[in-house]
């Protein structure tokens, strides 16, 4: 019997499969399609202190083996997430959820995390310091070790929940950023967010996306994500949630060998809404094929 269980900072997951923030809403669209309780957890839509509409459309472009989005952290704001989304989610999801929190200042991150700290449904907080789609915020924290350190310390001071810092790949060297998060007290690292990219429409001769650039995700970025997870695993002794282009059970195993304790599945959910159940269904046979009895045993196995 294949053992899929993993543990993230004391949070025990039945399996390492976590739909990624921004590809799973607040869960209930998918709960209409399958029992989302089969998932390890899921990371809800990036939430900020104030409600946000996000960027103008078009917000989506296609790429070879991937896509670009410039949604811009559209969300109803932390208070409505607590008063409306979480109670609605509770009816269809009985496990702990990952709260993905975005912000535009250190105080805003801290205030948002302080408000979600009392929510029993939240198993861990994923601090998004890496959204490429908003100006004057988010990614500017995520590409500066001092910014990451300040946000991490401020958030840790207001919550008892495990804090995972979600890093941007849009840097020359990911390691100093992971180290900054670790030294500031992060409980884990989540990576990678999307890569900054763009497409140009040959008919209009202008960028496809209204915001010009956006976050590139999908199968095409898997090797970049694997490389960065591998580097971060060597540099810090913290659990890692690995993501970026995962769309199959083989990708999950590969990401865990690179050093991830759990994985997030993102763009794949948008192309096939049943992507996560399919990955879960094929995991045991892929494990058997490669002589793996327990997923815990392979974390960082490639090092």
């Amino acid at each position: 019997m294949a053992d899929l269980k993993v543990t993230l900072s004391g949070l025990e997951l039945d399996n390492p499969i976590i739909p990624a923030s921004g590809t799973f809403g607040y869960g209930y669209e998918f709960a209409e399609l399958y029992d989302i309780n089969m998932l390890g957890s899921f990371s809800f839509k990036g939430t900020t202190l104030e409600p946000r509409f996000g960027n103008p459309t078009p917000r989506i472009a296609e790429t070879p083996a991937g896509m670009i989005n410039a949604v811009g952290m559209q969300n109803p704001g932390i208070d409505r997430v607590i008063s409306e989304e979480l109670p609605r989610l509770k009816k269809c999801f009985h496990k702990k959820v990952v709260a993905n929190i975005g912000g535009f200042s250190v105080d805003e991150y801290a205030e948002c995390c302080a408000r979600i700290d009392g929510e029993e449904q939240v198993g861990l907080i994923e601090v998004n310091v890496s959204c490429p789609n908003v100006h004057n915020g988010c990614m500017s924290f995520g590409t500066d070790p001092l910014g990451i350190s300040a946000v991490t310390k401020a958030v840790k001071a207001v919550t008892k929940k495990p804090v995972y810092v979600k890093l941007s790949p849009n840097v020359t060297d990911i390691v100093p950023l992971a180290v900054a998060a670790a030294e500031a007290g992060a409980d884990g690292i989540s990576l990678i967010n999307t890569l900054l990219g763009m497409r140009i429409d040959l008919r209009t001769k202008k960028p496809v996306i209204a915001n010009k650039m956006g976050g590139f995700s999908g199968s095409a970025i898997l090797p970049v994500a694997l490389r960065m997870v591998y580097q971060v695993y060597e540099a810090v002794k913290l659990p890692i949630i690995g993501m970026g282009g995962i769309s199959s059970a083989r990708d999950v195993v590969e990401m865990m060998l690179a050093g991830a304790t759990a994985v997030e599945v993102g763009a794949a959910n948008l192309v096939d809404p049943w992507a996560c159940p399919k990955i879960l269904a094929e995991l045991p046979s892929v494990m058997e094929q490669y002589g793996i009895s327990s997923l815990r045993d392979i974390i960082g196995g490639a090092h």
Binding site: G25, L270, P273
Partner: peptide, 9 residues
């Protein structure tokens, strides 16, 4: 993006 309400695209 998705066509079924998940991505807010």
């Amino acid at each position: 993006g998705c066509g079924f309400g998940a991505c807010m695209g």
